[in-house]
Amino acid sequence: MAQAGEDIKKYPGFMGITIFCLLILYAPLIVVMVYSFNESKSITEWQGLSLKWYVDVFVGPESAKFKEAALNSFSIAITAAIAATIIATSAATGMLRGGAFKGRGLSFALINLPLIVPEIVTAVATLIFFSAIGFERGYLTILVAHIAFCIPFAYMPIAARMQGIEDTYEQAALDLYATKAQAFKRVLLPLLMPGVISGFILAFIISLDDFIITNFVKGAGIETLPTAIFGAVKQGIKPNIMAISTMLLGVSIVMVTVSYFVGKSDQKK
């Protein structure tokens, strides 16, 4: 029976497609990695192995800027993703477990608004708005703008997940004299987790990669990784950007490996 149980999940070709998908995603990264070791300044003509770009990234004259940009990007991305995920979870609960109410359609539209509006429009309008209310441009303006546009990306997976969860569990908990907060925290939330995590990841990568809006609302002296990279590209693409990207890749792989082992030990518990 266990055999049949596992078999029922298998579809021929799905594994192949997954591998293919991963291949497409990772192939350009291999190019990035390879050319980060290029001797010359080219990203297309290979001229020998060299670590000089990594050295440049760590101690070169522009290294401080890139380091700071990376730090900014990550701190903003994590903060914005956390905030957006919390707000989105809360909103999803309200939308899907709050019964029917008049403003429901409008709420849905509002939540998805950042998705629909072209980034350049949001960028220019937000800058004008911030200037008008005297919100001085800097780290905070970027953070706030990011939280706002990350919300729909976090909301979608969470809502989709929640729609697949029957409310019987929460009702049962309430019947057993749990408070609403307890019902949420101990019943709904754990069931929601894969959706919440998915939402967090989406918000994180959207924030990490944002260029247009960040470019317009950032203040003097603040760079994020995308603005630094885009700017550097205008002066001619060099392998130092490839080196930075490869290192980022390394960091993320380390984090994944760590989380895998943590997850495994968790399971054993």
Binding site: P61, E62, K65, E223, T227, A228, G231, A232, Q235
Partner: peptide, 8 residues
């Protein structure tokens, strides 16, 4: 412009 003047 980014990288249009050396930091030094």
């Amino acid at each position: 412009w980014f990288e249009y003047i050396p930091q030094e």
